[in-house]
Amino acid sequence: MLPSEMPILSLGPIRLRPFREADAEAVMSVAADPLIPLITSVPVSGHHADALDFIKRQHERLSSGAGYSFAIADAVGDQAAGQIGLWLHDYRHGRAGIGYWLTPQYRGRGYASAALCALTRWAWTLPGIARLELYVEPWNESSWRTAERAGFQREGLLRSWQPVAHERRDMYMYSLLATDVPA
């Protein structure tokens, strides 16, 4: 049985925790990002009320069975730096997906790698998960390097895999298997 409460996970410079209303500023700060609102449910409006609606939806992910949506927070000041999720759409097949984003001021500081490592370590404690997957556009080198630093292996290029902004985009597929992780 999967946990019905969000854990708090820490590793290096980050803490993964449930979103709070105070995190609305972080959500609003990526509304104008050229990619994040296109591939996530972050609102493009940049309005505070829409950011609060986003946060509410993140809380509903667990109760709906969609997965676990964590705020990536700075371990020292607990300020939201981004989001990472473990998505359970293929859980019955032993697979879970991962997606993540960071606000601009926290990029390039090891937060994404730490968040991905913390989430994957915790994911392996969940019953029934044998494979973790994530998808990255080929041009997004910082994101695929993050995946590789966390031990994910590139399996190949999925051509025309996902619609992004009314256009089908190629994606690299990355995976990490339970058998890839040293005991």
Rank of each mutant, 00 (worst) to 15 (best):
residue 157 L to F: 01
residue 26 A to C: 15
residue 121 R to L: 10
residue 59 H to C: 06
residue 152 F to N: 01
residue 92 R to S: 13
residue 11 L to M: 09
residue 69 S to R: 04
residue 11 L to Q: 14
residue 125 T to F: 03
residue 72 I to A: 10
residue 121 R to S: 15
residue 18 P to N: 10
residue 70 F to T: 08
residue 69 S to G: 14
residue 140 N to G: 07
residue 11 L to E: 14
residue 95 R to K: 14
residue 177 L to C: 04
residue 178 A to H: 10
residue 47 H to C: 01
residue 101 W to V: 05
residue 44 V to G: 07
residue 105 Q to S: 13
residue 4 S to A: 10
residue 132 L to T: 01
residue 149 R to L: 05
residue 38 L to D: 08
residue 105 Q to G: 02
residue 2 L to P: 13
residue 70 F to D: 07
residue 4 S to N: 14
residue 106 Y to G: 00
residue 134 L to F: 10
residue 121 R to D: 15
residue 4 S to R: 11
residue 138 P to N: 09
residue 159 R to E: 12
residue 76 V to F: 07
residue 99 G to F: 07
residue 96 A to F: 01
residue 26 A to T: 10
residue 153 Q to H: 09
residue 24 A to Q: 10
residue 106 Y to D: 04
residue 93 H to K: 07
residue 8 I to P: 00
residue 137 E to L: 02
residue 127 P to H: 07
residue 104 P to A: 11
residue 102 L to T: 05
residue 124 W to V: 11
residue 5 E to I: 05
residue 2 L to Y: 12
residue 40 T to Q: 08
residue 120 T to M: 01
residue 163 P to M: 12
residue 143 S to D: 06
residue 27 V to G: 02
residue 118 A to C: 08
residue 93 H to R: 09
residue 161 W to E: 13
residue 81 A to C: 12
residue 37 P to I: 08
residue 2 L to A: 02
residue 121 R to G: 14
residue 135 Y to Q: 12
residue 63 S to T: 14
residue 73 A to C: 13
residue 143 S to E: 06
residue 123 A to M: 08
residue 12 G to N: 14
residue 39 I to E: 07
residue 135 Y to G: 00
residue 84 I to V: 15
residue 180 D to Q: 09
residue 30 V to M: 03
residue 91 Y to N: 01
residue 114 A to D: 04
residue 38 L to P: 00
residue 150 A to Q: 01
residue 23 D to I: 01
residue 87 W to P: 00
residue 104 P to D: 12
residue 99 G to K: 04
residue 25 E to G: 08
residue 88 L to M: 15
residue 51 A to F: 06
residue 172 Y to D: 00
residue 60 E to A: 11
residue 140 N to R: 11
residue 122 W to S: 05
residue 79 Q to F: 01
residue 65 G to T: 11
residue 136 V to Q: 01
residue 46 G to C: 05
residue 29 S to M: 04
residue 94 G to I: 09
residue 89 H to L: 07
residue 80 A to P: 09
residue 96 A to N: 02
residue 13 P to D: 07
residue 75 A to S: 15
residue 3 P to F: 03
residue 132 L to Q: 02
residue 135 Y to E: 14
residue 130 A to V: 11
residue 58 Q to R: 15
residue 39 I to C: 03
residue 95 R to I: 09
residue 151 G to A: 02
residue 16 L to Q: 06
residue 75 A to L: 11
residue 177 L to D: 08
residue 65 G to C: 11
residue 25 E to P: 00
residue 74 D to P: 07
residue 112 A to G: 09
residue 97 G to H: 03
residue 148 E to C: 06
residue 40 T to D: 08
residue 104 P to M: 02
residue 75 A to R: 14
residue 25 E to S: 07
residue 181 V to R: 13
residue 59 H to V: 02
residue 105 Q to Y: 05
residue 104 P to F: 01
residue 42 V to D: 11
residue 126 L to F: 10
residue 81 A to P: 06
residue 165 A to M: 02
residue 17 R to F: 12
residue 103 T to Q: 06
residue 129 I to D: 06
residue 18 P to A: 09
residue 74 D to K: 08
residue 68 Y to C: 03
residue 156 G to C: 05
residue 109 R to N: 13
residue 9 L to V: 10
residue 34 P to W: 00
residue 4 S to E: 15
residue 37 P to C: 06
residue 72 I to D: 12
residue 100 Y to D: 04
residue 73 A to G: 11
residue 28 M to S: 02
residue 145 R to M: 03
residue 83 Q to E: 15
residue 103 T to N: 03
residue 33 D to L: 00
residue 41 S to A: 13
residue 22 A to W: 03
residue 143 S to Q: 08
residue 117 C to K: 15
residue 104 P to Q: 11
residue 140 N to Q: 13
residue 176 L to H: 05
